[in-house]
Nucleic acid binder design. Structure first.
Length: 426
RNA sequence: GGAGAGGUGGCUGAGUUGGUCGAAAGCGCUCGACUCGAAAUCGAGUGGCGGGGGUCAGACCUCGCCCGUGGGUUCGAAUCCCACCCUCUCCGCCA
């Protein structure tokens, strides 16, 4: 969330930030109004509490001296009731402010391209040769079942719509992709591998922003208060919640594989075929904790790690920088690598790398000290997919398909698949 | 799931006949003295959050809150009561 001080000191900057996202900025006035009320109430309450503390000591002294102190006790009864009433008003005011702040998105970085919609995203670069076929390339949702490596029918029998089942060499390749990606991040990019819980508390979900704003898109475990994580960002960024780190530890870079669960509540009818949009998919995620001044460079580093996976697999892609209207609520700046899908005939988002500034760190209270004994500051948090495994799987099928219906296994993946170099129809 | 023990400041750890306890002591850390330098020793300092004042910004001053979390009792709670969470040990169950 945003620092409440921003609303006091630079309300116009907040309004401008919200407008650049195409959001209504009237909440700003609401927050300012509530905050002023809260502070006024707080001041009078603290005065009461101060009196209460003072009189309490008087009573203590009187009792010790063997005197009654009945007048003071009577006065304290009144003060206590006033304090109780004030405290509960304060609590509800604070809750109101908190609720508002939790739903207000981050302010885009000045460097983030200004835009009205997805159409205003900016292409940063392209990499790789788009493969040319002397036959009509198929989409992965045809190729996969024909090869016997994907089965959507069985998946829907087992779990309903929007699930996938990987089979044989398909299952092996999915597993190999996870290993390959993690290996790359750990061995070449300085990440520490984490294998976290796949369920998370409301608190943890709130830290990274999935709750409350996107709660209807989350799966909830019926007999507990836990959520199925929609991304490993939740555990990786929640890892250091409520901690004060030593500046010397930074940057901290984590990577981890988890399945991701999303209700896709607002996506009815979209991407219904194939592996593009499922209720459950695998993803290797990266998260970085760093000092505020380092986050722009760390974002480039994060993006480079994601691109390295695509390059290692020989998949052609382009990098888009999202405009103010399209970046996620947490982000100040975002790059989306998009992979070319020959069968689908378009680029498809396969990663999203964001600098979230101190927005999530404030929600989760993740801080650090530059010097021992120094003032705690909020870290900057970044996260990015490296990569979405299901979509990578789809991209391999589509890019590496052959005229005979087989699919060549990218060389980099073969060591992770027992040397298998080609998937042929069973 | 059952039984028991416990959750105090960066760490260890005192503190339950409720009252100058935000909290002893030790360690760690910072600064200073001693030293050529270091160790040892000695001295001083050393939590977080929020409000107000102050400042260009700090420093600083002041008030309040925080002893797992949330309630309750009381003039007053780290200390008493209730609920919940977490950790440890044993038993049960189980991949």
């Amino acid at each position: 969330m945003l620092d409440i001080r921003l609303f006091r000191d630079q309300p116009d900057a907040v309004r401008e930030g919200l407008r650049s996202r195409g959001r209504d900025s009237s909440v700003v006035d609401e927050v300012i109004r509530l905050d002023a009320q809260r502070r006024e109430l707080l001041a009078s309450l603290e005065q009461l509490k101060s009196e209460s503390n003072r009189v309490s000591k008087e009573i203590s002294a009187l009792k010790k001296a063997g005197k009654s102190g009945d007048d003071q006790v009577e006065r304290m009864r009144q003060v206590r009731d006033e304090i109780k009433a004030g405290d509960s008003r304060l609590a509800s005011l604070s809750a109101e402010i908190e609720a508002a702040l939790l739903r207000i998105p981050n302010l885009p970085d000045p460097a983030c391209p200004r835009g009205e919609s997805e159409a205003d995203n900016v292409e940063v670069r392209r990499w790789g040769e788009i493969p040319r076929f002397d036959f009509e390339p198929k989409a992965h949702w045809d190729l996969g079942p024909e090869l016997g490596v994907l089965d959507f029918d069985v998946a829907s029998k087992l779990a309903g719509a929007r699930f996938a089942l990987f089979r044989g060499a398909g299952a092996a390749m999915e597993r190999a992709l996870i290993s390959y990606m993690i290996h790359l991040h750990v061995a070449h990019h300085g990440y520490t591998e984490i294998s976290p819980p796949f369920l998370a508390t409301r608190q943890a979900m709130q830290c990274t922003g999935q709750v409350p704003a996107m709660e209807e898109d989350m799966f909830r475990v019926a007999n507990s208060d836990l959520f199925l994580i929609p991304t490993a960002e939740v555990p990786l960024c929640g890892y250091h919640a409520n901690e004060i780190l030593d500046g010397g530890q930074l940057p901290i870079r984590y990577t981890g594989y988890t399945p991701c669960f999303r209700a896709e509540a607002g996506a009815a009818g979209r991407d219904t075929k194939g592996l593009i949009r499922r209720h459950q998919f695998d993803k290797v995620e990266m998260a970085v904790y760093c000092k505020p001044e380092d986050s722009p460079a760390e974002l480039q580093r994060l993006l480079a790690a994601a691109e390295d996976v695509l390059q290692g697999l020989g998949l052609p892609y382009r990098v888009m920088e999202l405009c103010t209207a399209d970046i996620g609520p947490n982000a100040v700046r975002t790059y989306d690598p998009e992979v070319w899908m020959p069968g689908m005939g378009r680029y498809v988002e396969i990663s999203s790398c964001s600098d979230c500034g101190d927005y999530q760190a404030r929600r989760g209270q993740v801080r650090f000290r530059r010097e021992p004994g120094g003032r705690p500051e909020f870290v900057h948090l970044l996260n990015g997919s490296g990569l979405a495994v299901g979509r990578t799987f789809a991209a391999i099928l589509e890019n590496y398909q052959q005229a005979d219906g087989s699919v060549v296994v990218p060389e980099a993946l073969r060591p992770f698949m027992g040397g298998l170099d080609r998937i042929t129809p069973a």
